[in-house]
Write a protein that binds this DNA or RNA. Sequence first.
DNA 1: CACGAGCGTGTAGAG
DNA 2: CACGCTCGTG
Length: 959
Amino acid sequence: MTEPTPNARQRELIEAIEGIHVVDAGAGTGKTFAITRRYANLLSEGYEPDDVLLVTFTNNAATEMKERVVARCDYSMSALRDAPISTFHSFCHDLLLEYGADAPSYLGIDDQITQSTQLLENEVIEADRFRTFLSQFVDAHPEHEAVFRVLNDPTALLELIRELAAKGVFPTVDGWYRDGAAALDGDFGAFEELFAEANAPNEGANGATQSNLRTSLSGFERDRCFLPDAPSEDELREGYPSIDDRWAEEAFVEDREALTEFIHDVYVEYIQFAVRRNYLNFSFLQLFAFVQLCEDHALRESIAFEQVMVDEFQDTSEIQFKLTLLLAGTDNLCVVGDWKQSIYGFQYAAVENIRSFERRLRAYKRELNGEHERVAFPIEEVTTIPLRRNYRSTQSILDLSRHALTVPATGSESVDRTVEDIDGLEAATDRDHSTIAAFTSASEHEAILDRIETIVGNDDYAVDENGDLRTPRYDDIAVLTRTRRFGRELQTTADEFGVPVAYEGGVKLFETDQAILLLAWLRILADEDSRRGWAVVLERAGYTLAEVEQILDEHTYPDAMDAFRDRLAAMESIGAIARQVFERYGFEDAYASSLVALLQDVSDGTTRNLGGMIRFIERSLDAEATHEIDDNPGGDSITVQTIHAAKGLEHPIVIVANINRYSFPPAGGGDDRIRFEDPIGLRQTKLSSTAHGQPHLYDNWRYRVLSACLGRDYDEERRLLYVAMTRAQDHLLFSAGAEPSPLFENLPLEPESVEPDLEESRIDRTEQTRLQVSIPEPDVPAGQSPHALMDDRVFEDRDDGRGIEFGNRVHEFAEQYADGEAVEPASDDERRVRDFIDELEGELHVEEDAYLPVSVGEQEVTISGVIDLLHVTGDRVEIVDYKTDRTRDAETEYRKQLSVYYHVVRQLYPDREIEPSLFYSGKGTVVAIDPLSMESLSDLVKIERESNRSDQGENPTIR
DNA sequence: CACGAGCGTGTAGAG
DNA sequence: CACGCTCGTG
């Protein structure tokens, strides 16, 4: 894309090099473009890269900025490599390594930050260390027993520490840093206002009705057990239509000394624990950098930048705002953001940082200048530059998106803001060809896929490309979801129907097939839960449930698997084991390599602590840990991602999906028992007491009242919806299921109820480098392996063969050899296999799983098996099954097996000729097989099932 | 008809 | 824990 000419507002920003500027940069208004141009302009005005701090939200954004700056100025990439263009976290990291050795001393902690201090990025590992810390903490502090008993989830405590750190509340060894203690107490004045608001009478048809507060306190005692000092529901709700004002103070004022002490001790001792063990988490990085900059005046003054720019300011936390002020040596400060796109509240982003920029600026300057002048520059003059010209979407999309910010998120919520209060964006294009539509369906996944099939190739959904409209493709479409789960489900359904999908964003790495198999093998190796491990491994190999059970009961594991286990047992490191497992199963993808890297990292590369590793994986599963994985298969596929992941991106056609009750907004909230909330401060929802003789957890009635006043804020949900909508360039669709969310129903749309009909689109048009096979819905179909179809009488009295063991060895060799491993043939048969493989010129796929759905009457049955070798060339695909038989007696039975593979492979490679064949290793001959039709296979399954019904009972289902 | 009480329900996001 | 539904009452 050629760089456009900046518009008037953008030019104002680019050229405004002095003074404080708040850039209110709406979605798609060329923010990154303007920032990079401004940066380049600063350089051309004589600033050195070292004079200019540019803070970005992610490391990727930092790299992109650098690249774009390089394109605009005389500096090279290498000259800018060390320029301060980075995230807050990396900046703090660098600062601490260089100057922060003594930062802990300002909190009264003796240990130093050293060059070997590591940044601990993995949260599961940190949670692990925190648990270790906590158990020794409890032993050392019997006085905290009562508060500790209240905790249900120890990691929630770590979460609380992170929150306090992000809000600038730090402990010192014997108290709180600066005015941290005040924040913990909360602000009664501010609370009183919330109380009054919640307690104001409502207007009914015949005069005043009870206040929201009074309503929500009905059922005050339901499912609860309070201490005897709690008022009864009748006492509390005595007044009408409002409850008595005295309850504000009664509820707010509470003895929280034990709680505060507990949190203080856990907090400060955990910091000590971390520093002593040479690690810091993201939160402590900022905490120590802040403290160092605060206390070391000489350092602060020497670092102070002449120019500071902060991007995505709406997603900064309180501590980051303050860090910004400490790092700015002059009032040449420029923050860029859009409150409407603030969606990281759960990472403690404070939308007020940008919404109330000037108020916070004044408050923080005053606070930081308490006993020493740290922020010397004047802050009186703040210039706001609004960027309103949108280069992404059509006007109709932009007009609709404003409604997202005013839609009630629940049936009863009233939003005190109207569309007119929202600054609208103005489309740069005159063209408005947008289709804006909404649909609901009881089967939402299918309805979405159905709609996608309608869109692709349909000029009603033509998209703009350099000013011309063209026919839409799959890769023009993005499905954006609030929750990751829905995206993953959709991906599964799409695979099933052959709609090409690329899922982008965080992946729950430990829920992938790769990790599940690895975990299974680790369990087998460590002999912990080994039955579970074997079950997974055997099922994966295509054994039916009944077969698996038999093997498990009799411990008659297939020889090849036994041998493989022994091989793994000899491995030195977890990384080697993982690599070996993935190699065996043919996983050469991004998931596998990320897992190897991660596990290597976790185990410090050397130790082979299987039990520890199993627990790490289990806990990661439990914590639903996600990892960013670059797994874009390329090609023409739709994008599925969460709204969070889509931020900053754009797509020609956007489908905002799963706008359903309990999903968007998501239901519930944390059940953390110790919380820190503005303005009530630190609170516990449960109290431990022996009021009735026995120690017992009681509900805290005060918290119950306080939380009723706080209410729930759905602004962030609306902003998420806004972000989703403003990703769309040409067309914007909304989808919901059987129970749409109020967010969906209250948008000015006319939803259409649809009944998806995907029969016709069930054609596989995917052809990807990685072999992917569709696995049908798990609940209906029954599973079989191709061997079940075969008449095994032909195998019974064969003394010509050399037994299953020999066969397995040859297969094992063939697999390893085709994979390029350095293995030597140990028999004539293996030598013949080697020669055969050497002749093949195309791409080889080894041990591929094949799943074939077959309709038998009403039922869907899945036949699964493992293809020994696929040989793929430009125009054909050869399916090879090795046989060590000396005769061809069993060929009619093998034909059934190969037919199953044939139909699976045919779907994967629709444009190529498929050649199923047997390789007889005894003679080195290849025999082509004429595949059976689907109908014949279906009949075979039917016959096989009828003959088995008597002794098998219900057919087992597999997943 | 209007309001309030009682009850069943389902439970994220990401560096 | 807070939604929305249903049922009971004035």
